[in-house]
Structures are given as structure tokens and as C-alpha cells.
């Protein structure tokens, strides 16, 4: 069985700083990581491979330095890393990203065998749209399984897959045909540590590096800024609220008195509140 896992290299966003004067993002020196949600997809793929045999190919689109995340994924146990990098991809929105990734998955299939499953994470921590998975599925006409909590069965003979999917208000048990695209829910498995052998292999492995042309993309007008229907017009800081909080006096008053004071202020700004609270209290 062949599985492709799409991973994105993202800034470790907890450490992103915004320039206080110019409001621009200061990316310099911000460490990058594999999008944390993608690790659950990778783990699920490795589990299926260990169970059913086969290979896991990891795919990322990004600048040349994104090779680092591929090496990390190989270090966790993936078999092959493919880096899709080209200046034509710069500025891609989700439509253009899913186009490029879908083309690369197609080429991966031609080269190493058509994947039975393509995995993505639920969403990223930077763009955070959750749109790329569905985009790839549509473009490759794969069955789309989002928010998957568990892969229950893969039947390679009959080419079917059964999963549990997080739906609105409950869990769906879905059965469909492979090839399918799965976006994996977070927290659904325990991401493994790679063996020392894997880590060493990851550090030294030859990566496959494709640009638009070698990935088989003939029409670059579907890529990057040109292939992106969305346009970011403005980036700005949220407006600060005009007034700060009114501070309730604390001093050396006891807690009960301060509490009474808070309640009085609250009832003053929300006159209907007291009656509403009494109604709920009475209902108990």
C-alpha cells in the first residue's frame, strides 16, 4: 500500500512577534516546525503501513528550507520525502496550493505507484483555513473524509475503507472507496519517536526535489499569486478599546464588601440581569 502525507512547515507561532511600530511580522529568527496537526496524519499513515505493509511518502510545498521538515518526518519513520519548491508557487492561496499539491500527488503516483490514501492535517496553525485537504480531494476526485478520528478498516482487496468521522453533534461511521483523502483529527493517536536509525537516515537521505516543471505542472498560471483568486488587501492591528476597565476599589476592604460592590455595578449596567438570575435560580 502507498500512502502520501502532506505536511506544511510553519513558524512556531507562539514565538511570532509583531513589530510594534510598523505592524509587520518579524519572521527573522522565528523557528519553524512541522505543522503540529500534520503529525497525527503522519502517525496514522505509519501505523497503517506497519499494519498492512507498503510505503509512506511525505510531501511538502514550500521554500528550499522546508526540506528540514521532510527530514524530520523521515526521522519519525516516513520512507520518502518530496519537496515541491519553485518561485511560481509564492503567494499561493488555498486554491493554488491544492492545485500544486494535487499535481505533485499525481506525479508521485506515476513514479512510485498510485496512493491508496492521501493524508493531510486537520488545518495549519498559520493559515488555519482547513481548506487544502478538501481542495486536493476535489482536484484528484478522491473520496473526501475530513475530521477523521480513527481508521477502522482498510480492505485492499475490495478497495474500501471504514472510518469514524467527527461530525456535527456526533460521530459518523463512514465506508467508502479508496483512493480517499483523509484529514486527521488531532489527539487521535500518540505520535511516535523515530528510531535512531530513522533519525540518521532522515538526516542523510536524498530528498526528491521538484519544481513546477518537473512536477508535471504545465500551466503555471494556476499557481502562486496568479492562480489565487483571493487577494490580501490590508493587514492591520486590531483596534484597541477606547476605554480601559473601570477598577473596583480593593484597598483594605474585605472580599465580601468588594463582591457586593461588583454585583451592584453589574446590576447597574445590566438592569434586567437580576430578574433573569432569579428566574434561573427559581427553576432549580
Amino acid at each position: 500500500m502507498h500512502i502520501v502525507v502532506c505536511i506544511k512547515q510553519v513558524p512556531d507561532s507562539a514565538q511570532i512577534r509583531v513589530h510594534p511600530v510598523t505592524n509587520t511580522i518579524m519572521r527573522q529568527g522565528v523557528p519553524t516546525i512541522i505543522n503540529p496537526y500534520d503529525l497525527f496524519a503522519l502517525e496514522e499513515a505509519l501505523r497503517l503501513r506497519d499494519w498492512l505493509g507498503g510505503e509512506v511518502t511525505v510531501l511538502t510545498m514550500g521554500p528550499p528550507m522546508a526540506e528540514e521538515s521532510l527530514r524530520k518526518a523521515l526521522g519519525i519513520g516516513a520512507d520518502r520525502g518530496v519537496l515541491l519548491t519553485d518561485r511560481f508557487f509564492a503567494g499561493s492561496d488555498t486554491l493554488a496550493t491544492s492545485y500544486a499539491l494535487a499535481q505533485a500527488v499525481r506525479k508521485i503516483g506515476e513514479t512510485w505507484g498510485i496512493p491508496e490514501i492521501v493524508f493531510t492535517g486537520k488545518q495549519t496553525i498559520d493559515g488555519d483555513t482547513a481548506q487544502v485537504g478538501p481542495g486536493i480531494a476535489r482536484r484528484l476526485a478522491l473520496q473526501q473524509l475530513t475530521y477523521v478520528a480513527a481508521v477502522q478498516e482498510v480492505d485492499l482487496e475490495n478497495k474500501t475503507i471504514t472510518v469514524l468521522r467527527r461530525a456535527e453533534g456526533g460521530v459518523q461511521e463512514l465506508k467508502t472507496a479508496i483512493p480517499a483523502l483523509i484529514t486527521m483529527l488531532e489527539g487521535t493517536n500518540e505520535v511516535r519517536r523515530g528510531t535512531i536509525a530513522d533519525v540518521l537516515r532522515g538526516a542523510r537521505a536524498e530528498l526528491v526535489v521538484w519544481n513546477a516543471q518537473t512536477a508535471g505542472i504545465t500551466d503555471v498560471s494556476n499557481c502562486g499569486l496568479r492562480g489565487s483568486p483571493t487577494v490580501v488587501k490590508r493587514v492591520f492591528a486590531p483596534k484597541p478599546r477606547a476605554t480601559k476597565a473601570v477598577q473596583i476599589e480593593v484597598g483594605d476592604r474585605d472580599m465580601g464588601t468588594i463582591a457586593e460592590d461588583v454585583i451592584a455595578r453589574l446590576y447597574a449596567v445590566q438592569p434586567a440581569l437580576e430578574a433573569a438570575l432569579l428566574r434561573t435560580a427559581a427553576a432549580y
Binding site: P240, R241, K244, A245, V246, Q247, I248, V250, D254, M255, G256, I258, A259, E260, V262, I263, R265, L266, V269, E274, L277, L278, A281
Partner: peptide, 29 residues
């Protein structure tokens, strides 16, 4: 949080929360 809250109480929440709970309970009953 005081930049966007409407009311602020600068105190230890571990002591203040029980006081607020008691005060509300008293009022409501």
C-alpha cells in the same frame, strides 16, 4: 485583560471567587 474588560478587580482570584459566589447566592436567595 484590563485593556478590554469593563470592570476590573485587582486581587487574588482564589480568595475573591468564593466571596463573589457567596454574595450572589445570598442576594438570590
Amino acid at each position: 485583560i484590563f485593556d478590554f474588560a469593563h470592570f476590573g478587580v485587582v486581587t487574588n482570584a482564589i480568595e475573591f471567587l468564593p466571596a463573589l459566589t457567596t454574595a450572589f447566592r445570598k442576594r438570590l436567595s
